[in-house]
Write a protein that binds this DNA or RNA. Structure first.
Length: 118
DNA sequence: GGTATGACGGACA
DNA sequence: ATGTCCGCCATAC
């Protein structure tokens, strides 16, 4: 359960007033393709482990929870710590995305290598 | 081993 | 901008 533990630790380290994306957390946890596992961790453990789950949003800067399934609460919790979300749940990533300390030029994803399309 | 799940992401029309 | 398609992979069973 290494990956899951790293994800939880990362989520706990997101400061108030900032957000992180699923893909970002997956990459920081060691697997840039495991965004879905981050979602799964939140789904299954955010309540039990008291995680600041509302600071996790999708790569387009949006709230991924549906209306009536947490959307409103997430928006409210974010607003309460100074992160505004518009009516569609959109947050300005450029202004509020968490940047973990210690990384100079964070390479969250491997460079795209040339690929031939058959 | 296999199947199902999951609050996803990127590419493309 | 919106919507669809498909790859991805850690877990649970």
């Amino acid at each position: 359960m290494e990956f899951e533990d790293r994800v939880k630790s990362l989520i706990r380290s997101i400061p108030r007033g900032r957000v992180a994306t699923y893909a970002q957390l997956a990459a920081l946890a060691g697997n840039h393709r495991a965004a879905r596992q981050v979602a799964r961790v939140l789904h299954s453990s955010s309540r039990k482990d008291r995680l600041p789950w509302h600071r996790v949003i999708n790569s387009r800067g949006g709230i991924s929870l549906g209306r009536g399934r947490g959307f409103e609460e997430q928006k409210r919790l974010l607003k309460a710590e100074g992160v505004p979300a518009d009516r569609s749940g959109r947050v300005d990533l450029g202004a509020f995305q968490w940047e973990p300390p210690g990384l100079h030029g964070p390479r969250l994803r491997p460079p795209r290598i040339a690929v031939v399309r058959p």
